[in-house]
Structures are given as C-alpha cells and as structure tokens.
Amino acid sequence: MNATSHWGYMSLAMVGLALTTVITRGSFFMLPSSVTLPSRLERALRYAPACALTAIVAPGVFTRHGSLFLSVHNNQMWAVLIAAGVFALKRNMMLMMAVGMAAFTLLRLFA
C-alpha cells in the first residue's frame, strides 16, 4: 500500500505530468516567432535536466532511511557505480542493466 493506490492523487499527478510534456515540447512551437530564447536562459535550461535527475538519483543511492549510507554494505550503491562505469565505457544500455542487476544480486548473496 502506497500513495500510488490513491486514485485522485494519481489522476491529478498524471494530468500535471502530461501538461509538463505538452508545455515544454509545445513552448516555442506555439509562441509567436517574435519571442525568442535568451541565451542566458537557454544555458540555465541546459543544466536543469541533469541536475534534476541527479537530485532524484543521489539520495536513493547514497542514503538509507534518511541518513548517509556510504558503506561497503550499500549493495545498491556499488551496483549503480559499477553499472555507470560499464555504461560510460561501452554505451550499451542492455549490458549496463545486466551488469548492474548481476552485481546487485551477487553482492546481496555473497557480500
């Protein structure tokens, strides 16, 4: 049982999420051509997605129950770091997933 079983919450969430897709993709297609993207704003926009994804991933990987968890026993952290290394070298998503899952499973069983 978690928040995703509340129908109202999820429906509102979906409507808003769909709007973020429509608004961002539609933005400059729908605005009058006199409106342009200032270069300073464009530079900020370039970094926002990377930072937002980092802000989501980092706490999940490096914390447990609201506290920093930089330990040899943090199996998920090691699996993610190994998978990230594999992806950086090979740029192969399926290989990265397989290595990440395998590392996690092995660490959990034997470490």
């Binding site: 973020t20 897709t21 608004i23 961002t24 993709r25 539609g26 933005s27 400059f28 297609f29 342009t36 993207l37 464009e42 926009l45 370039r46 926002a48 997605p49 930072c51 937002a52 994804l53």
Partner: peptide, 12 residues
C-alpha cells in the same frame, strides 16, 4: 518540468 526543460531548447 525540470527534467523536461530540455524540450524547450529542442522546440526553440
């Protein structure tokens, strides 16, 4: 919205 902001650049 933050993750999707890259689409604003694509659109421009």
């Amino acid at each position: 919205l933050l993750v999707n902001l890259r689409f604003v650049i694509f659109a421009a």
